[in-house]
Design a binder for these strands. Structure first.
Lengths: 214, 214
DNA sequence: TAGATTGTTAATCGATTAACAATC
DNA sequence: TAGATTGTTAATCGATTAACAATC
């Protein structure tokens, strides 16, 4: 039938992946370094990225700079927040109240960057009910209902590897679209669900290959 | 003078970056799933990577499989450990004994994967001297001497963003070659020093772009 | 104006994939 | 043997970079 072609979201993942880095560096420049404007060259130097790449990346979304003067930092920050849908804070569910869950619940860095940990869950009766930085640890059995009722779309998994897939299935079933997992295991998730990982060992192993090759 | 060309390390970073993922999936297959052999197809499916890419990646280092039967898992694990220099455990210095440092010091996942947290440092008198999972938190003033004396080459930074660059400079000055930083800031480091980052907010921000585009 | 820097094009570079002979 | 799967080549695909007209 020919028909209307599917909307082509032409912007490569790898470009999207750099935008948060630009955002972070720009915020630093504005707040810590007190700068008002910057150039693709300056930003690139700070990040170890070519100025051409930064201009190319931004050009996917519009024209945010001025020839001769560069970019107004606060304006570019605002635009990047729009693009990344960070203008309102996303509620985040945290699953796993162990040492790492504890650290995440106390992490100050979520605020003002688009996220807020709204609920913490665990299955350990010893942990359920305790206070973690103002949040009460809830029973995992309530997870699904809370997510559905509050419409939470983002979750962080900080449970042991053996429990991670089960938790991921629960989260996806309840409507979560994005998962950041600290469990050292590959999760299966249906298409349309984004999963990113953070495994310190994988990162360390990426560096040992080069040890001694100096 | 013409002379001897610099040794060309032809293997792309991006290939090295995938090897730890192969290693992790293979270990899972051997231990949890009780498998003895696997194929590039099976491994690829588990990781969401094409079988061709896995074969190509491995072919940079040798021939580890057999036509018709695939790879012997334990043998491939051993080879990957050799390639990544993981056959002996690397001592790791952890800087920052806050909530996250606490979580890292208690993380079981380093053992048997090539790493061992050997020392923990902080500058807070309240924390110096306390026990963290069998490790005594030491004064940051001892950092340089300990690293030099023990020849530690790998460090993890879990201090606030404001202190991270200063700590990185100390580490590099003392001889550290690889740094995994949890501080949400870009670090400056001389060529030859590897720095990788883990910032949960950056990862969450990489996913919100896609929210609602289902 | 002169200098600086953008946004964009075209060229280059590099990574992924498809395909298949070799062979277990 | 027949079926399966490797390692490798060549083709494809995609990302990065160099260069520059436009213009602040």
């Amino acid at each position: 039938m020919g028909g209307i072609p599917a909307v082509i979201n032409d912007i490569p993942d790898i470009v999207i992946g750099r935008l948060p880095l630009y955002l972070r560096a720009l915020s630093y420049m504005a707040k810590e370094a007190g700068k008002v404007t910057t150039s693709s060259h300056e930003l690139g130097q700070r990040l170890g990225i070519s100025s051409a790449q930064i201009r190319k990346d931004l050009s996917h979304f519009g024209e945010f700079g001025k020839q001769g003067t560069g970019y107004h930092i606060n304006y570019l920050i605002e635009k990047l927040r729009e693009i990344l849908q960070l203008q309102e804070e996303w509620p985040v569910v945290l699953v796993g109240a162990g040492f790492l869950g504890h650290a995440l619940a106390h992490y100050q860095g979520f605020e003002h960057r688009g996220f807020h940990i709204s609920f913490v869950f665990d299955n350990d009766p010893e942990k359920i009910g305790i206070d973690m930085n103002g949040l009460v640890v809830r029973d995992i059995s309530e997870l699904s209902d809370v997510i559905k009722e509050k419409g939470v779309q983002i979750a962080i998994i900080s449970v042991p590897a053996t429990a991670a897939q089960e938790i991921a299935d629960l989260l996806v079933g309840a409507g979560v679209h994005s998962i950041l997992s600290y469990a050292p295991i590959n999760l299966k998730a249906p298409k349309g669900v984004h999963v990113l990982y953070s495994d310190p060992v994988v990162q360390l192993q990426r560096m040992t290959y080069y040890q001694g090759s100096e």
